[in-house]
């Protein structure tokens, strides 16, 4: 009789529901991080593309630091660092104990790392847009914000999409790190199941397969978005 099917089944004998719940947490974390990371990365790219040297330098320090640190270390730095900082601030106001939400800490850490890489992608996309586009927009009398929104952004998305899709796949995999700070994502649930049942290979194998399935689904989705973004492109 196949025990592994029982182990993976839903209900009291199996670990199916725990793993499904973990999968939802993993996906939720990745989806919640994405807009935050994209926005931050876009701002950093604007700063790096600026004509103001101090702004460029400040942004490049940011990306050098967060691209150079291991993701795991960034996670710990933010998880423990913010907690200690908050504690110190609270102590000034007469004490109290806070515990920062680990989901939130994971989201910040992953978002910061994502944004550091995304800013490079956006920057090279900016460089792929010729000065004539800005000049044309100016000749039409568009304001700077309108130029950005109507002329630059649509082209930027198309140019940045391949790089960003890559980063999305990296982000999806990086979410696995948050299991270390206690978030009950798919890897942590698999770990609990592995410890209880002593079937580590089975459960971690299933976790790996789940990540694979998500990367396949993502690739299909990305191909669709790319087709949509390239609709207006002539080439």
């Amino acid at each position: 009789m196949p025990d592994w099917l029982t182990l993976l089944s839903f209900g009291p004998d199996g670990w199916g529901d725990q793993i499904a719940r973990g999968t939802l947490v993993t996906v939720g974390l990745a989806v919640a991080t994405l807009p935050f990371g994209l926005a931050l990365g876009f701002l950093a790219a604007l700063a790096k593309n600026s004509s103001e040297p101090s702004l460029r330098r400040a942004a490049s320090i940011y990306t050098t630091v967060f691209r150079g640190l291991p993701e795991l270390l960034t996670l710990f730095l933010i998880y423990f660092g913010v907690q200690i900082l908050l504690q110190k601030v609270l102590a000034l106001f007469g004490g109290g104990y806070v515990e920062i939400n680990s989901f939130f800490a994971g989201m910040i850490a992953l978002g910061v790392v994502f944004s550091a890489y995304a800013s490079e992608v956006f920057l090279s996309a900016f460089r792929g847009i010729s000065a004539g586009q800005y000049e044309g927009a100016e000749a039409l009398g568009l304001s700077r914000l309108q130029t950005m929104r109507l002329v630059i952004l649509p082209q930027l998305i198309r140019l940045a999409l391949p790089g960003l899709s890559n980063l999305w796949l990296v982000l999806l995999k990086d979410t696995a790190l948050v299991s270390v700070i206690g978030i009950e994502d798919v890897l942590r649930q698999a770990g609990v199941a592995a410890r209880v049942t002593k079937e580590a290979f089975l459960f971690f194998g299933v976790a790996c397969l789940i990540y694979l399935v998500f990367s396949i689904i993502s690739s299909i989705g990305i191909a669709r978005i790319e087709r949509w973004a390239n609709k207006g492109a002539t080439r």
């Binding site: 696995a176 971690f204 990540y211 694979l212």
Partner: peptide, 10 residues
């Protein structure tokens, strides 16, 4: 396609 940490556990 899978996280390095999951491979390490596996």
């Amino acid at each position: 396609g899978t996280p390095l940490i999951a491979q390490a556990f596996l």
